[in-house]
Design a binder for these strands. Structure first.
Length: 590
RNA sequence: GCCCUGUUAGCUCAGUGGAUAGAGCGUCUGCCUCCGGAGCAGAAGGCCGUAGGUUCAAGUCCUACACAGGGCACCA
């Protein structure tokens, strides 16, 4: 099988924004650095060099929009009280037009409150950016590959795969929004023992269906889907294979069943909106080229030439301990077979040969013991630090509080497809992405089935739908009208809304939340932590609902109405972007 | 035995070395002549697993220990 590249790949290139957008944080940092430098030059502060200026958002809104601890950090070196140092710096930034207030607080924090006009500008900025709102440039257009799911093609997707699908897809979207050129890849483990067992299992069921006796070993795949595949073969091709040579039969069944499972995986993944740019077949790594050598051979050769390979006890070893692993690892067993690890080395070598600056693998916690050797291999191949391996804790499936044991072998399982049917793709994705990858996930089917309002995805989607409803109301459209929210908003608001009238505390809280979005994108992309997005979206929804309760948007006051429409439109856009990065829909009505 | 991840409100979980540790659910009390009540406001609820250490400052970093889950193959 050839490496398959799906058609119509869309790689979104990083947008080059016409104007140089500097986020508020960077602007403030420069401002404070200048203030410290001036204080030093004026002889107020005795420091040898400019300290690093850290800015943070205080937890307590009473402390302003931003705070810096620069005075606390430099006090010792400057041999002065942190508060006095802070006062000296604060006095030099207080006059900036974007700053409403500066105060020294606590042990020596400098708290900064932005002016209303500075905040109001974010509404314009978000609406102007449109789908590019929140875009960052961490990647500088470098190429990153995210490999995830990568299931053995020997059975249906299970719930754990669903978590990796949601996680990988969202992480990829996040990285793309943060300025990386991203490719999504699925590694098909279609070589090796699992496939043989798979074929034997199908063959045995086929024979049984034709009324013959067939041994079925305990360690084979017991799942009902095996019989299903066997029945399909029987229906399509008849019982001609019953009397065929067992080796021929198994080899034929293997390919038929493999194709079916692969189609199933693709279909389920598409059903939840996940599309891979590349499906990479492990088999291709074992195919011999004109010189009679496979990619696996060449991978080992490369390591050998670099001096990292040796022979011992009849096996071929990789000296992974030279790169921080606990023990050396076997590449080729004494029986002449390659280990799975050897193929994985060839695979990662192939990835880097394709020119990725960075490669991210998403694995379940059950593979964490593999991390050290894989990173060692990447380093030995000349790519230290370019491989990130994200370890996600496992999913435990519960049914009404009782653990459902899942095993491909015994066939006792609830497939991910069933779960998607029951709870819907949006809720399933949101549920998966809300928890940190370091946290094990309990997925209770009974609970998820209830479709209860407890699910925060509805809270967020409802906020979006509510905004669309306001837009419909303002445009005089019926409640059930289909509309392009952005177009409707554009016509209603016009080119120059008077945002200066947005001064109500809840309006400013909502603006601040909207303004935070680019920081969240950057932080989530930097830490490979999509779970920050749902939490942000819920905060944004809370800010919007509070605003909605206090402030009526559509009133007789034309100026205020237009300004508030602009604000809710900026919020709508932010919901839409945040949900898009999660792969969750933003419905215009529910 | 060794390695990884976790341990924060009754439950499920957030928390870039900073100020009085947050949210949802659950419990209790209020709010619909009004753009969607799938909403909002308020109350109660905490020795951040334990013990040391680093720091001006520790839920956050370091070291032990306890508990939970997952790994420790010439398996895939």
């Amino acid at each position: 099988m050839e490496t398959k590249r799906s058609g119509g790949i869309v790689i979104r290139l990083p947008a080059t924004l016409a104007q140089e957008t500097r986020c508020m944080k960077d602007t403030l940092r420069t401002l404070i650095e200048d203030a410290v430098r001036e204080s030093m030059e004026a002889g107020q502060v005795a420091l040898d060099e400019l300290p690093e200026v850290e800015l943070e958002r205080p937890k307590d809104p009473a402390h302003g929009d931003w705070a810096t601890n620069v005075a606390l950090r430099s006090a010792k070196a400057a041999r002065m009280s942190p508060r006095v140092l802070a006062e000296a710096v604060a006095a030099r930034i207080a006059d900036h037009p974007d700053i409403a207030a500066v105060e020294v607080a606590g042990p020596g924090f400098i708290n900064i409150r932005l002016s209303e006009s500075a905040l109001q500008r974010f509404v314009t900025e978000a609406r102007k950016a449109g789908v590019d709102w929140g875009r960052a440039d961490l990647g500088h257009g470098r190429r990153v590959q995210v490999e995830f799911v990568s299931a053995n093609p020997v059975g249906p997707m299970h719930v754990g795969h669903g978590r990796w699908a949601a996680l990988g897809d969202s992480m990829a979207a996040l990285l793309a929004h943060a300025g990386w050129r991203v490719e999504r890849e699925f590694y098909i483990n279609d070589a090796g023992v699992q496939m043989e067992i798979f074929a034997k299992s199908v063959a045995a069921r086929y024979l049984q269906l034709t009324g013959r006796d067939a041994t079925f070993a305990d360690e084979w795949y017991q799942g009902a889907y095996i019989t299903g595949i066997a029945r399909e073969i029987l229906d399509a091709e008849g019982d001609v294979w019953a009397e065929a040579d067992p080796a021929d039969r198994e080899s034929h069944f293997k390919e038929v069943a493999y194709a079916q499972v692969l189609a199933h995986l693709d279909q389920v993944l598409r059903g939840m909106g996940v599309r891979f740019d590349v499906w990479f077949s492990e088999r291709t790594l074992h195919e011999k080229d004109a010189d009679g050598r496979s990619a696996v051979d060449r991978g080992i050769d490369e390591l050998r030439e670099a001096g990292h390979v040796y022979e011992a006890d009849g096996a071929t070893w990789f000296r992974s301990t030279a790169f921080g692993d606990d023990k050396d690892r076997v590449l080729r067993k004494a029986d002449g077979e390659f280990t799975y690890f050897a193929a994985d080395i060839a695979y990662h070598r192939d990835k880097f040969e394709r020119g990725f600056d960075r490669v991210i693998d998403i694995w379940g916690a059950d593979h964490h013991g593999y991390v050290a050797r894989m990173k060692a291999a990447a380093a030995a191949l000349g790519h230290p630090g370019q491989l990130d391996i994200v370890i996600g804790q496992l999913v435990t499936l519960l049914r009404n509080g009782e653990v459902v044991r899942m095993s491909k072998r015994t066939g006792e399982m609830v497939t991910f497809e069933e779960l998607l049917d029951e709870v819907g793709a949006d809720a399933a994705r949101y549920f998966f992405l809300r928890r940190s990858t370091d946290q094990p996930l309990d997925f209770d089917i009974g609970l998820a089935k209830q479709r209860s309002n407890d699910n925060p995805v509805y809270y967020v989607q409802y906020a979006h739908a509510r905004i669309c409803s306001i837009l419909r109301k303002a445009a005089g459209l019926p409640l059930d009208a289909d509309m392009g929210a952005a177009d409707v908003a554009g016509k209603l608001i016009g080119a120059d809304p008077q945002l200066a009238v947005l001064t109500d505390p809840v309006e400013l809280v909502l603006i601040r939340k909207v303004a935070e979005f680019p920081e969240i994108v950057e932080e989530a992309a930097l830490t490979l932590a999509p779970h920050k997005l749902p939490h942000y979206a819920e905060d944004l929804a809370a800010a919007f609902h509070q605003f909605y309760t206090v402030c009526r948007v559509v009133t007789d006051d034309k100026t205020l109405t237009t300004a508030r429409l602009a604000l809710v439109d900026a919020a709508r856009l932010t919901f839409e972007r945040a949900l898009a990065l999660l792969g969750v829909g933003a419905p215009e009505r529910m």
